[in-house]
Nucleic acid binder design. Structure first.
Length: 493
RNA sequence: GUCCCCAUCGUCUAGUCAGGUCCAGGACACCGGCCUUUCACGCCGGCAACACCGGUUCAAAUCCGGUUGGGGACGCCA
């Protein structure tokens, strides 16, 4: 097989949002396709009609697009191929690979419950497996509803396959029950639809979560019955929470949704970079990858077999998601080309109503310099509009700690700060050097350490307790703004 | 309960397939120091793991068996 024959698929069911676990599956598929010059197919598994609305589909696609994961074909919709699914079921029936089962749902459920109660193993007993054609015909004629079950081989032997992550997997026939492929209402089930779709889409590699591992032997049986060579399988470990439970929106909330990261000011690629590391490693110490580097480094062999844990603590005051994710995002924030960062900050400021069109015009340089000065201590794009608000707008609020520690502690600042304003105003042009000189002179005049007036100025000018060198700030910010905010200092006391 | 899978620092992981170079390396988080007008960045240092028991071997995180623990599947969901 030439490498360009690789075809993978990402088949989400529409849920209205992209789950980070799903995103991780998409990422691995995408990387594998890109690495081998293959194609990725997006297929929406919308057979469950009540869950599939236009909005719920949109949510998935939005998430993928935001992450920058592109696909080569699709989106295809599973529901569009109902006729093919039904035809496959007919074929299985005609070939004797499947049979009609008239057992009632209630009856089966009762048996299952009894088995659970008796702590026994439950499996369909095969009651209808050997019904005579006459019997089948008469029940059908009587209008008895039936499902179609796959006829799993009986006796010795089993299904074996080589998983690209887990290695050899084997399951004996005896452990596989005659599973249902078509509902009593005539609708084929996922197991069959999925196989039929993968055959039609000529999928060569199925890369999916480990929760699909037990489906694989049954699906291989389906491939065989349909006389098609099964694809290669690669199952990836799951992502769990700190209690080793599956992460879900129901129990963990928005943190599991990709959209949440967009709202929180994540850089899309940073999230991809974080997610790919959750269960995969290049085999060396690298952790930060450009898309090209990641495609180059990626391989299914690097996927870990053990489940990984998404290190998220609900209500953690310091980290709103896995600390490593935030760290990686912060890394990109402070190292990416500033022009590129500007593109990402723009919508954030726009949303807050503090964007100035001149930032793309004559204030472009000033804007980019501002980003450079502030990004060192920010973690998300949102920080530019919150912690960094004073750089772009007058409606910032002063941090309480900054007010307590750098202002109220030194009541004389009520006079010193306006005095600093006077001294700065007297300068023909405020340079960092000149600003430092006048600030130090002022401190000396009053016999205090320079840090006192300087940090007081930081509080009233930036609203923060921390930030870049204030001498740089005096010179960088609009002269009138600096002087005005210093003169307003007494208002904070 | 049955079947399948897994097991290295708090978390993500390297090392396991080809046993010795590993009294186990990196990253995040945490703690300390340096730098500094502040904080961050950066740099330096610290804390911290081979689940347990047995076997094979001159030698085991690495191979084998068992135990324990965890996860997944067991739907007329996808």
């Amino acid at each position: 097989m030439s490498t360009s024959d690789v075809r993978v698929r990402f088949p989400p069911s529409p849920t209205g949002y992209l789950h980070i676990g799903g995103a991780r599956t998409a990422i691995y598929n995408w990387l594998f396709a890109r690495k081998h010059g293959g194609k990725m197919v997006l297929r929406i598994e919308d057979t469950d009609a009540d869950r599939s609305t236009e909005d719920s589909i949109r949510g998935i696609i939005d998430g993928l697009e935001w992450l920058g994961l592109d696909w080569d074909e699709g989106p295809y919709f599973q529901s569009a191929y109902a006729a093919e699914h039904a035809a496959a079921a007919e074929r299985l029936l005609a070939q004797g690979n499947a049979y009609k089962c008239f057992c009632s749902k209630e009856e089966l459920e009762a048996r299952r419950e009894a088995a659970v109660k008796a702590r026994a193993d439950y499996r369909y007993a095969g009651t209808c497996r050997d019904l005579s054609p006459e019997e089948v015909a008469s029940r059908e004629a009587a209008g008895a509803p039936y499902v179609i079950r796959f006829k799993v081989p009986r006796g010795e032997g089993g299904v074996a396959f080589k998983d690209l992550v887990y290695g050899g997997i084997e399951r004996s026939y005896n452990d596989i029950e005659d599973f249902v492929v078509v509902r009593s209402n005539g609708q084929p089930l996922y197991l069959l639809c999925n196989v039929v779709d993968d055959i039609r889409d000529r999928i060569t590699h199925v890369i999916r979560g480990q929760d699909g591992l037990t489906n694989t032997p049954r699906q291989i049986l389906l491939y065989r019955a349909l006389d098609v060579e099964p694809p290669t399988f690669a199952h990836m470990p799951l992502t769990l929470d700190l209690n080793k439970a599956k992460i879900s929106k129901r129990s963990h909330g928005e943190v599991v949704a990709v959209q949440f990261y967009r709202e929180q000011g994540f850089i899309p690629w940073a999230l991809v970079n974080f997610l790919v590391l959750l269960g995969w490693s290049p085999g060396d110490d690298r952790e930060i990858f450009s898309p090209e580097e990641l495609i180059e480094a990626f391989s299914l062999e690097g996927i870990n077999k053990a489940n990984s844990i998404f290190n998220y603590r609900k209500d953690d005051p310091k980290f709103f998601t896995d600390p490593k994710a935030i760290n990686i995002n912060a890394h990109y924030l402070r190292t990416m080309p500033v022009a590129q960062l500007a593109e990402l900050v723009k919508p954030v400021l726009e949303r807050e109503g503090i964007w100035d069109a001149a930032y793309e015009g004559k204030k472009r340089q000033w804007f980019e310099r501002t980003l450079e000065m502030t990004r060192e201590r920010f973690h998300t794009l949102k920080d530019f509009a919150t912690l960094g608000r004073a750089w772009f707008a007058d409606d910032f609020t002063i941090d309480d700690k900054a007010r307590q520690k750098n202002l109220l502690k030194h009541p004389q600042l009520m006079e010193w700060l306006p005095e600093l304003a006077d001294r700065l105003e007297a300068l023909p042009i405020i340079t960092p050097e000149e600003a430092e000189r006048v600030a130090r002179e002022l401190a000396e005049t009053h016999g205090v350490k320079p840090g006192i007036p300087v940090n007081g100025a930081r509080a009233v000018i930036t609203g923060q307790i921390k930030g870049p060198s204030m001498f740089e700030v005096f010179a960088h910010l609009d002269r009138d703004t600096v002087i005005r905010r210093l003169r307003q200092a007494p208002e904070y006391f």
